[in-house]
Design a protein around this nucleic acid. Structure first.
Lengths: 186, 186
DNA sequence: CATCTAATTAGATATATATCAAAATAATAG
DNA sequence: CTATTATTTTGATATATATCTAATTAGATG
C-alpha cells in the first residue's frame, strides 16, 4: 500500500491525525474501546467509512483491534501515542525533517549564479546573497595571516574590480577585522 | 479563508504538519531563519509553492516573518510549537476531540432498535448490544432494595417472556448480585 | 519615474482522499 | 448447510489541495 511509504516516520503520524473523522475516532476511543458499528453511530458515518479510517490509524499503530465473534473492537494504543508524540516534539527531531535535503544547495546556487569561474560577475544586491559571496571571498585569505590594505585589495581585485566596496563589506560583515591599516580574518 | 474554520483547534495543527513539503520547511527553519527563495532552492520547489506553504504555517502560528527590503525572512515560533504540541498530546485533550458528538447516540439507537415501547422485541445476539439492553433493564430495579427470585422474574417478565435467560445474563454481567436466593443491584 | 527583484495572488491542473453504496468475507446461530 | 450479522473490500464520485505558470504587488535602486 503506497500510503505506508513516507520519507519520514513522523509524517504518517500527522497524516493519520489530520482528518476530522479520525480525530473524533481517537477521541471516542480515548474514553472507551468501541466496535465499528458503535463508532459509526457515534460519528454519524457509514461503517465502511469508519473501517477505512480505522485501517489508517492501525497502519501507524495508534489503534489495535480484538475480535469478539464478528464484532471487531478497537482500542487506542496509548504507548504508541506517547512515544510518537515525544519523538515529534523536540526541536532535534524537527531538524531531521530535512535529512534528505542537500544542506548547502542554496550557497552553491548563489555562487554558481554570481561567479564565472573565479570572476565575480556582479555584487549581489540582496543582503543574504551578498553574504554568501563574502563568505566565499574571505576563504581566499589565510586564517592566521595579517595583510596590508594593498594586499587585501590585490586579493579581492582578482575576483572583482570594485575591491573597495567588497573590502568594506567584509569588515561590515565582521568576516575581516582591521586595526591601524592591518587586516586579518576573524 | 475556509481552512481557518475547524471544529477543533488541534486539527489545524495536524493539517499544517501533514504535508511533506511543510515538514521539510519546518525542519529547515528549525536550523535557521530563511527567505522564501532560499527555502525554494533548498526544497527544489518554485517560490509560489513555498509561499503557499508558509502562509498555512503562519495561519496556525507555527512560523512568523520579518521583512528586510523585499526579502521576507521566516522563522519558527518555538513557543507555539511547544504549546500546541503539549495541548495536543495529553489523553485529556484527546477526549475533547469528540466534544460535539452526542455521547449516548449508540445506546439510544440500540434501545430504539430493540424495544417496542416497554417490550423487548428480541434479545440482542451481540455482546455489546446485549449489554446496552441489560443496563436499561437493571434500571427497573431499586438500588437499595432486595428481591426474591420470583420478584425478579416478574419485573423482567414485563419486558420479555424469557426472564430466565435475562436474569442469568444480568448476574453474568455483574449488574445484579445474588446470594442464597436473594437478588440486589450492585 | 522606470526598472529590477522578491514575494504574493490568481488561475489551472493533477493527484489524493473522504465518503457512500454494493459486493465480498467471516463468524455465528439455527 | 443456510441464514444472519458485523466487517471489510471494491468501485465510483466529489472535494480538497499541492504544484506549476503567469500576472500582480511592494520595495529598492538608479
Amino acid at each position: 500500500m503506497a500510503s505506508l511509504e513516507f520519507s519520514f516516520p513522523s509524517i504518517s503520524f500527522f497524516k493519520a491525525l489530520s482528518d476530522e473523522s479520525r480525530l473524533k475516532i481517537v477521541g471516542a476511543l480515548a474514553a472507551n474501546e468501541r466496535s465499528v458499528e458503535e463508532l459509526a453511530t457515534l460519528l454519524d458515518l457509514r461503517a465502511p467509512t469508519v473501517s477505512h479510517h480505522l485501517a489508517k490509524l492501525k497502519e501507524v499503530g495508534l489503534v489495535d483491534m480484538r475480535s469478539e465473534g464478528t464484532t471487531h473492537i478497537y482500542h487506542l494504543v496509548m504507548s504508541e501515542v506517547r512515544s510518537l508524540a515525544k519523538r515529534v516534539l523536540s526541536l532535534d527531531s524537527m531538524e531531521t525533517f530535512t535529512e534528505d535535503v542537500v544542506p548547502d544547495a542554496w550557497e552553491r546556487k548563489i555562487l554558481g549564479d554570481f561567479f564565472d569561474g573565479q570572476r565575480l560577475k556582479e555584487i549581489p544586491a540582496s543582503r543574504k546573497k551578498r553574504e554568501v559571496v563574502l563568505r566565499w571571498l574571505v576563504e581566499r585569505f589565510n586564517a592566521g595571516k595579517r595583510y596590508t590594505e594593498k594586499e587585501v585589495n590585490a586579493i579581492i581585485g582578482k575576483h572583482h574590480p570594485d575591491f573597495a566596496t567588497l573590502r568594506r563589506e567584509l569588515i561590515c560583515a565582521k568576516l575581516l577585522a582591521r586595526e591601524s591599516g592591518i587586516y586579518w580574518r576573524t
